[in-house]
């Protein structure tokens, strides 16, 4: 199905994370490919979010890690923070669950869109501003020029998440980690955000890790699906196969828990 398109953007091998002596991840393997959306499913506490945070070195204090997270020829787990900062936001970006809390309430949209752009790419204020307006247009914020001057609280939830996506895309990253990007949003705006992510993935060749507990969301946009349980990936495969013919009993139980079986759309 995906044969011949193996351009791994990011590889996670045997990732283990322990927080306070408690094993959170017990050997996670995942491969993200450019231009593909990789869905990561599983119930709360299964370690989906921790996997995403581990990639950017954002695990809580006192976490112990082992394994490999390979990106551009180096193991991110062993990269010192200073060098990791050159990757974070620039090469690997993240969109968080709740845009009401993940955007700084006291900084203008412009500041939040341009600060890392200027830091990573070294562009001037004016150019950063133009790029920022372009980004807002790309994520379909009406009146981008005006929107730059405003603060996050002056936007609706869906708009804020679009802005957060624009922030993540500002430095043209190769990998985007989206941690439950639609969970905090109305059902009506969820589809818009998902379509946006899918479109960006196709247009920009982004490798997307879409963390979600919602198999409906998964079936709508993911190319590959991995299912996690108790800190382990129990099943990985192309979306159609995993959702139609689950091999692991846990995947089956997740699917059975859906109110309506997800209908299959052709990719």
């Amino acid at each position: 199905m995906t044969a011949g398109r193996k351009t791994a953007a990011l590889t996670i091998e045997g990732l283990r994370v322990a927080i306070g002596g408690h094993d959170v991840l017990r050997g996670v393997d995942l491969t993200l490919e450019a231009g593909r959306v990789h869905g990561l499913a599983g119930e709360s506490g299964s370690g989906k979010t921790m996997t995403g945070l581990a990639v950017l070195g954002l695990l809580p204090h006192g976490s112990r890690t082992s394994g490999r997270i390979e990106f551009a020829g180096r193991n991110l787990l062993e990269t010192p923070v200073r060098e990791l900062d050159e990757v974070r936001g620039a090469k690997i970006a993240m969109v968080f669950q709740d845009p009401a809390t993940s955007l700084h309430p006291m900084l203008t949209v412009e500041r939040q869109l341009t600060e890392h752009m200027r830091h990573h790419l070294g562009v001037g204020r004016k150019e950063a501003r133009e790029r920022a307006a372009g980004l807002l247009a790309k994520v379909r914020i009406p009146g981008p020029e005006e929107a730059l001057k405003r603060y996050p609280h002056q936007f609706s939830g869906g708009m804020r998440q679009r802005i957060a996506v624009a922030v993540a895309l500002a430095c043209e990253p190769e990998v985007l980690i989206a941690d439950e990007p639609t969970t905090a949003l109305d059902v009506t705006v969820q589809a818009g955000i998902l379509r946006l992510l899918r479109g960006l993935c196709d247009d920009l060749g982004l490798a997307v890790l879409l963390v979600t507990h919602d198999l409906g969301v998964m079936s709508a946009v993911a190319d590959e699906v991995s299912v996690m349980k108790d800190g382990l990936v129990v099943e990985t495969g192309p979306r159609g196969r995993v959702l139609r013919e689950p091999r692991h009993p846990y995947t089956r139980s997740l699917l059975d828990a859906l109110p309506v079986p997800p209908e299959e759309k052709s990719p």
Binding site: L56, L58, L84, G89, F96, Q97, H104, H116, H119, V167
Partner: peptide, 17 residues
């Protein structure tokens, strides 16, 4: 402990910023 601080780190901003 706020999300936006973690988001700022995810953006790779220098520690003092």
């Amino acid at each position: 402990g706020q999300d936006y601080v973690r988001a700022a780190r995810a953006k790779g901003l220098p520690g003092r910023v």
